[in-house]
């Protein structure tokens, strides 16, 4: 069906879509990841709401950290009626390269409150040093 072009109305409906009447969740990559470093470690924080720790795999190989796994759907009773469904269930995989020497045998990971926290200790030689001038 063709609708006659109506400039003010089209503009309004575009604004409606951008704004208040139809709020949509902010979408980003999944999982969203922050990577920070301090003197001793790199810290990776990945947002994995609703993901069980057994459904996440963390691997480190040749300087590349890979997070993979699956966000599985949760159980809903048969008699329930879905009124809104914005959460997405899916398999995921993301890789990040670390261009520093790290102690790969000392990497640790833990899940809490929907956040996967990975600590990657720097290798001694990669830490910043001051070299005394003789």
């Amino acid at each position: 069906m063709l609708v006659r072009f109506d400039y003010p109305r089209t503009m309004n409906s575009m604004l409606d879509e951008l704004f208040a009447t139809d709020v949509r969740p902010t979408r980003s990559v999944f999982p969203a990841v922050d990577i920070t470093e301090d003197e001793h470690v790199f810290q990776v924080l990945a947002e994995l709401p609703g993901v069980k720790k057994d459904d996440v795999k963390v691997a480190f190989e040749n300087g590349v950290l890979t997070l993979s796994g699956e966000r599985k759907p949760y159980q809903i009773p048969d008699d329930a009626r879905i009124l809104m469904n914005e959460m997405r269930t899916r398999a995921f995989e993301r890789s990040f390269e670390f261009g520093f020497d790290v102690q790969s045998d000392k990497i640790s990971a833990e899940m809490s409150n929907g956040l996967l926290r990975i600590s990657i200790p720097k290798a001694e030689q990669a830490k910043a040093r001051t070299i005394s001038v003789k």
Binding site: P25, P77, E86
Partner: peptide, 29 residues
């Protein structure tokens, strides 16, 4: 709405005797 800087995803289900609302808030205290 103006004060929101991001919008979390929400699921809502109606059961016989209750409503269940789920909000994705990873890392929120």
């Amino acid at each position: 709405f103006a004060s929101s800087s991001w919008v979390p995803a929400v699921d809502i289900a109606e059961h016989d005797d209750e409503y269940i609302v789920k909000v994705e808030l990873p890392g929120v205290s």
